[in-house]
Design a protein around this nucleic acid. Structure first.
Lengths: 222, 222
DNA sequence: GTCTATAGCCGGATAGAC
DNA sequence: GTCTATCCGGCTATAGAC
């Protein structure tokens, strides 16, 4: 979802002769997709390599050819998810606070269209509170990165005079992340009846009004 | 945490002769306390009756004398937790919006003093998004009750003229619940460095200002 | 790259002794 | 009320055939 540890990427294939690697990568990508759904349903501890493999259409042994352990699969899934979102949402810097807030609503809307991945992050972030959880450090760093990135955007807006000079950017950024997570949690329990991006828009609109001198909010269709 | 299904309580003991039942209830209560910590660390699926029993100081067989199954233990833990909170926070109706918001901050402060229970609700609420999870219906109902209760309090404040007449009480109530959950999630990842009730106070203060005509907020020490 | 087979351990639940 | 013993199955990971 946010830029993190970009240098730890999987080592690149040495060659692409005869296209054989592309096939392997497709299988690998399919495993990651299936694993997302399982981690969403079961969390990490209660997910099972055998069940994941069965859903992919291979055996557990076959799966472990691609990922050397369950933990390796988890971190690969998390890194893969982040890479997708970086490409989708953080390739360019927002030029105004309104633009920044609109792209946050965009992200929430995108998240509502991939419930598996969204639920996976809900479950794993909660599980990972435990020290020693395989994704604990990952999520600690992730929230630092997310909050830091939003806070940086807010600070830039303060400097441009769009937001009040007394804005506590770190706190507001952390609050925005909290609202996103909390809305996603309620949405996960009843997705059909809960307009998650709409709720987030409402919150950000009110937030923006209270942070600007003239009380202007967020346009209706972010 | 909130009034729910009060009629489903465990059937009362038939007698209290010679005080033997009190001893049994103490053991039962101890199991519930330990189970909270385990569900917090592992969620439901990955918790183990044998490990819980070991922490209590009995065997798995002994535990299953008190709770006939793992699922029975889960629902007992959830009901027990709600009963505690009802007694603690919802025995009397708040008389003003400020009082209501202050009691929500109180609840957050109390939650920060019992990290196990708080984390348990984080993890289980996320897990329970899955249809068929043993606590799915429980959490769906729970959020309905929580949001409904807060919304009712807000509506009363609107009628007293404390909040603007255009306040969307349901949406605001749902947002408050979301902020509480989201803040708890971040706090769980780094409890020592995160002033969770303080953050919530800051949010509710700004929220109150934007909902009142005169822009008055929340006193400093809710 | 995927399979089968297997090791070694842990899971929930039941039965029955004390 | 707690124990031991046991059933049956699932778990991760490894080894080696193809």
């Amino acid at each position: 979802m946010i830029v993190m540890d970009r240098d730890q990427g999987r080592k690149p294939r040495k060659s692409a002769a005869r296209g054989s690697y592309a096939v392997g990568d497709e299988r690998r990508a399919r495993i990651l997709d299936v694993a997302v759904e399982h981690f969403a349903q079961w969390g990490f501890h209660a997910s099972s390599l055998a069940r994941i493999a069965k859903d992919v259409g291979i055996t557990q042994g076959g799966l472990l050819h691609h990922f050397r352990s369950k933990e390796d699969l988890l971190v690969s899934v998390l890194r893969h998810s982040d890479e997708q979102d970086v490409a989708r949402f953080f390739s360019l810097e927002p030029r105004t606070a309104v633009e920044a807030f609109e792209s946050i609503v965009d992200l929430a809307r995108f998240n509502s269209e991939r419930p598996g991945r969204t639920r996976m992050f809900n479950v794993l972030a909660a599980e990972a509170g435990e020290l020693g959880h395989p994704a604990h450090d990952y999520f600690v760093r992730r929230y630092r990165a997310v909050v830091g990135q939003i806070a940086g955007t807010l600070r830039a807006a303060v400097e441009r005079g769009e937001l009040g000079p007394d804005t506590d950017c770190e706190r507001v950024a952390s609050e925005i992340a909290a609202v996103m997570d909390g809305l996603q949690l309620q949405w996960s329990l009843a997705p059909a009846t809960y307009d998650m991006p709409g709720r987030l828009h409402g919150y950000l609109d009110r937030l923006l009004r209270s942070l600007t001198a003239d009380g202007s909010g967020l346009p209706a269709n972010g």
